[in-house]
Write a protein that binds this DNA or RNA. Structure first.
Length: 578
RNA sequence: CGGGGCGUAGCGCAGUCUGGUAGCGCACCUGCUUUGGGAGCAGGGGGCCGGGGGUUCGAAUCCCUCCGCCCCGACCA
């Protein structure tokens, strides 16, 4: 490709709307332009990168025997009603009607459509296992799109679905995906970790998330550097720190005392002199409108994902102030478990075997001391607490690190959620009708590009791995008016093409500084500079990441480049070199 | 949905408080010079100042209203 003929609208200044680095660089380097909130046009450069990412994914999916399909992005409401999700999903789904008033939606994911195909066709265990996938647009009406391509309303997802006869077979499909995902992210040159993840309210027994550590990320992952334990905070376990003060003997009866104007745990603790760890934090929640009281140690906070796996409800939210007054007879800040009759009380495990604690009295501006779970109120214990900074690993006692991450992939064991609700059945070897067990596996293509830019950039711009950069090398003649330079550059460009190297020829009538700056901004991993030294038959091979330049003989340059590409980050030994 | 910010040339911004002929830098076009790190000189093009309504002799500027974008939170398969 000749740069002079391409549309690569680089910007010298950073557009004001971009906050995170990847967003700034995608705009500045002319990869994308915004159409509306959460909707982006992918210009030539990002299209090239995303096609390369797509190709890597396709190769690795095909390598585990997955079969690619192409499905409609527009779905009839019927299939979503069948699975129950038409009503279960709220505003996240784009919904529309056709001219006859029939309801449709834009696909957020394809469990329903894939399962519909299976219902029509799969009859026997002999047809299993099946792994089907597609790489297509997904639509989600996000409440707050943000950070460029990080969270958008239309994105590209590779999503695959496995159908197996039993849990052991699903385990094999799941492991195949896990391995394929590792190869995909390796080839894309990402530094990532596979972490245990929350499978969501929609069920599923096991789930892993592929997380790229980055400050721009939206997920928090707890990582143990001692034993390698890693889990999304929604799911993570830890040992909490010991209470600051031991409990006193729990013989004394609960006793009310006034706490005028003290609402938060910190205020109450300061007032009564006992540490936060000797207080009970009481949170009023509404689950499908029904009241729940959640109890945590004063210094702990609630993990709502864990709560949602304990309470089976479609909607769980903090109770409104009016509800709190009606249910507890007091306002938030003075709530507690003692004396409640019609409210389910769930207590975090950290309060098990504790006693002599301080809790709200359900009377404004009053608390109770000497409160002991089990004695003063009935409750069920569960793991409800969010892992906090300073907690230690349950396996090895090392202090856990909490790290922000970008989620680039997620694999789930779905179980029978869709095969049962939608009525997928096959005959097993005994001629008995059984529901196949399913898995679903997603990768966000734009997230790979975004995460890669977040991980690989410097003050001059992107530093993309050769496997996903829009071009592998740029040939840059310093002065086009110099015949020797122009002819040598032209020859280099041709021989790169002949060798199958993805090359761009910067034949623009620009000064060298402009060409260098643009090439560095858009992140082309290698550059061959043709300058004055051509009179001695010498050109320069420059590595973007290190900015190191090596003089090489003109006739050896392409060979050297090919070697370097074969060894560069993300390239695998056999197939990746072009 | 709550809080905050912003909307003036393709991009970055000034002008708004205190109403009086719409500006600067970059980018763009033409010419000449220059050619190893975002060149210089000269000339030039480009604006419903987000939309609508109002106040006024006069509105980018004041008032009302709507829309859009960004950030924080809520939310989130």
């Amino acid at each position: 490709m000749r740069w002079s003929q391409l549309f690569i609208p680089t910007l010298r200044e950073t557009p004001a709307e971009a906050e995170v680095v990847s967003h700034q660089l995608l705009l500045r380097a002319g990869y994308i332009r915004q159409l509306a909130a959460g909707l982006y046009s992918y210009l030539y450069l990002s299209r090239r990168s995303l096609l390369k990412i797509e190709r890597i994914i396709r190769e690795e999916m095909d390598a585990i025997g997955a079969q690619e399909m192409f499905l409609p992005e527009l779905h009839p409401a019927e299939v979503w009603r069948k699975s129950g999700r038409w009503d279960a999903i709220g505003h996240d789904m784009f919904r529309l009607q056709d001219r006859w008033g029939r309801e449709l939606c834009l696909g957020m994911t394809e469990e329903e459509v894939m399962t519909s195909i299976a219902i029509g066709e799969l009859r026997s265990y002999k047809q299993l296992p099946q792994i089907w996938y597609q790489i297509q647009a997904k639509f989600r009406d996000e409440p707050r799109p943000k950070s460029g391509l990080m969270r958008v309303r239309r994105f590209t997802m590779k999503d695959s679905y496995s159908f197996d006869i039993d849990a052991a077979a699903l385990d094999i499909s799941y492991k195949k995906h896990h391995a394929a995902y590792c190869r995909i992210f390796d080839r894309c040159g990402l530094r990532y970790i596979a972490v245990e993840a929350h499978s969501g309210a929609m069920g599923g027994s096991q789930s892993h998330e592929f997380a790229v550590p980055s400050d721009a990320g939206e997920d928090i992952v707890a990582i143990c550097e001692g034993c390698g334990y890693a889990a999304n905070l929604e799911k993570a376990l830890s040992k909490h720190r010991q209470p600051t003060a031991p409990d006193q003997s729990a013989d004394e009866p609960a006793e009310e005392f006034a706490t005028p104007g003290k609402k938060t745990i910190a205020e109450v603790a300061e007032f009564d002199g006992a540490p936060e760890t000797s207080h009970i934090k009481s949170l009023a929640m509404a689950a499908d409108g029904k009241p729940y009281l959640i109890l945590l140690r004063g210094d702990h906070s609630l993990n709502e994902a864990k709560l949602s796996s304990v309470i089976a409800a479609a909607e769980i939210r903090p109770a409104h102030p009016e509800e709190i007054r009606k249910w507890f007879g007091a306002d938030a800040g003075s709530l507690g478990p003692v004396g409640l009759t019609d409210i389910t009380i769930l207590t975090d495990q950290a309060l098990r075997d504790r006693g002599d604690l301080i809790a709200g009295a359900n009377k404004n501006d009053h608390h109770l001391r000497h409160v002991t779970p089990g004695r003063d109120f009935e409750t069920t214990f569960a793991d409800l607490r969010a892992v906090a900074e300073g907690d230690t690993c349950v396996q090895c006692d090392t202090t856990l690190k909490l790290t922000k991450c970008i989620e680039v992939g997620h694999i789930f064991k779905l179980g029978y959620r869709y095969s049962e609700s939608m009525g997928l059945r096959v005959l097993d070897p005994n001629g008995k009708e059984v529901a196949p067990i399913m898995g679903s596996y997603g990768i966000g293509l734009e997230r790979i590009l975004t995460a890669s830019i977040e991980q690989n950039h410097d003050e001059a711009g992107m530093v993309l791995p050769a496997t996903i950069a829009p071009f592998e090398v740029v040939v840059t003649p310093v002065n086009l008016k110099d015949d020797a330079q122009r002819e040598a550059a032209e020859a280099l460009y041709q021989s790169c093409r002949d060798r199958g190297i993805d090359v761009i020829f910067d034949d623009r009538k620009e000064r060298a500084g402009v060409k260098f700056a643009d090439a560095e901004l858009i992140g082309i991993p290698y550059r061959i500079t043709v300058g004055n030294k051509i009179s001695d038959g010498i050109v320069e091979l420059v590595t973007r990441s290190t900015r190191q330049s090596t003089d090489v003989r003109l006739e050896e340059a392409v060979e050297r480049l090919a070697e370097v590409l074969a060894n560069s980050a993300g390239a695998d030994d056999s197939s990746a070199s072009p």
